[in-house]
Amino acid sequence: MTIGYVTIGAHDVDAALPFFDAVLGALDWERSQPFPGWAFYGPKGGEPCLGICKPYDGEAPRAGNGIMVALKARDQAQVKAVHAAAIDAGGSDEGGPGYRPAEATSGFYAAYFRDPVGNKFCAFIAE
């Protein structure tokens, strides 16, 4: 079994699109809007796998504690581009590009950020 898609809550989907267009565009992902009030993103020519929507229960969207979506990048340059796009589009920094742990010189290279709602993301490569 594999995960089919993940949804991220937004106060206003249309207002959230510039952030996600910039961040996911840096991963070479594209947006589709299968029905009103929703946007889905996925690799160009591939299956959409990340949805942006208002919460179904009508309550305010909120970030979960310990919940994070990790986005696989192709190289260090793309990790840096995704992180920069997130910050430039109104997100907040949760840990800039670099190896984890910090003293490593190879292995897991990642950057962490939050969207304007507070959802946490990671862009990474595993070398």
Rank of each mutant, 00 (worst) to 15 (best):
T2D: 13
I3R: 06
Y5D: 07
I8M: 13
G9S: 00
A10L: 01
V13H: 00
V13A: 01
D14N: 12
A16K: 00
P18D: 06
D21F: 06
A22Q: 00
G25N: 09
G25A: 09
G25D: 10
D28T: 11
E30C: 10
R31M: 07
R31F: 08
S32W: 09
P34A: 08
P34M: 03
F35H: 14
F35P: 01
G37W: 08
A39Q: 05
K44P: 08
G45D: 12
G46M: 10
P48N: 09
C49D: 06
C49T: 09
L50H: 02
L50W: 08
C53Y: 03
P55H: 13
P55M: 14
Y56P: 00
D57K: 12
E59S: 15
R62P: 05
N65T: 13
I67N: 14
I67Y: 08
M68Y: 09
V69Q: 11
K72V: 11
K72Q: 15
A73S: 15
A73Q: 00
R74F: 01
D75A: 03
Q76C: 01
Q78R: 04
K80S: 09
H83N: 03
A84N: 08
A85S: 14
A85E: 09
A86D: 03
I87A: 07
I87Q: 00
D88P: 02
G91L: 02
D93W: 10
G95A: 10
G96L: 09
P97T: 12
R100S: 12
P101V: 04
A102D: 12
A102P: 13
A104F: 14
A104P: 11
T105F: 06
S106H: 15
S106M: 13
G107H: 07
G107Q: 08
G107P: 00
G107T: 10
Y109F: 15
A110M: 13
A110S: 14
A110E: 13
A111Q: 00
Y112N: 12
R114H: 05
D115Y: 04
G118M: 03
G118T: 04
N119I: 05
N119L: 07
C122W: 06
A123L: 10
A123H: 02
F124N: 05
